[in-house]
């Protein structure tokens, strides 16, 4: 069990989740920057969206992408978890969630939001060699592939985003 989140008590989680929701609502986005020491970016110089947007919406993007990939077999890399891990894996641990120093776990520990992705997903990028998942080039525009898709796709995305925010931490699953 290398995942510290699993050891946290449920009560602590509930209380902290509430606090995190309140904080996220009350503080301007910039206020998070003082915790910049959690940022581990191993590769690339730019995220798929700007940092403030990602902080608030990464779970929606991931949830949308997970359903697209799982059920339809759409394997665009821009918002895929694998693509996140590709850039954000800690060079020291090789992982995004094996310690509190790592990218995902660092912030989720700070915000006290339960992280369920890595019960099943690997926290490490695919070993060199067989990778087909290019890292994000700096030239990637903030306008993602989703924006190019159909109106119904956009509406579906919006709906799921709303659902995800209603569910709180649920959206990260």
């Amino acid at each position: 069990m290398s995942n510290p989140a699993k050891r946290r008590s449920v009560l602590g989680w509930l209380g902290a989740a509430l606090a995190a929701v309140l904080l996220a609502g009350a503080l301007p986005a910039g206020a998070h920057d003082e915790h910049g020491d959690h940022k581990v970016i191993a590769k690339g110089d730019k995220c798929v969206e700007d940092a403030a947007y990602m902080r608030r919406n990464h779970m929606k993007l991931l949830k949308h992408q997970r359903d697209e990939t799982m059920h339809k077999g759409i394997r665009t890399t821009q918002y895929s978890l694998k693509n996140c891990i590709e850039c954000h894996a800690n060079p020291k641990t090789g992982s995004v969630a094996s310690s509190k120093e790592d990218f995902c776990m660092g912030c989720h520990t700070y915000a006290a939001v339960k992280l369920d992705c890595f019960e099943c997903h690997s926290t490490k990028p695919k070993a060199a060699g067989g990778t087909l998942h290019p890292i994000v080039a700096p030239s990637v525009q903030p306008e993602g592939t989703d924006k190019q898709s159909s109106l119904s796709g956009k509406m579906r995305w919006q709906m799921q985003a709303n659902l995800a925010s209603l569910n709180g931490g649920e959206g990260v699953k």
């Binding site: 077999g73 394997r75 694998k82 891990i85 019960e119 099943c120 997903h121 690997s122 490490k124 990028p125 695919k126 087909l132």
Partner: peptide, 25 residues
């Protein structure tokens, strides 16, 4: 230490995926 292409974990049911991640590429 799952294969990044094949997430799997405790408490869920699983079976042959026909290597869907390979078929898709």
């Amino acid at each position: 230490d799952q294969n990044p292409d094949v997430p799997r974990g405790k408490g869920c049911v699983e079976s042959c995926t026909l290597c869907v991640h390979r078929i898709d590429r």
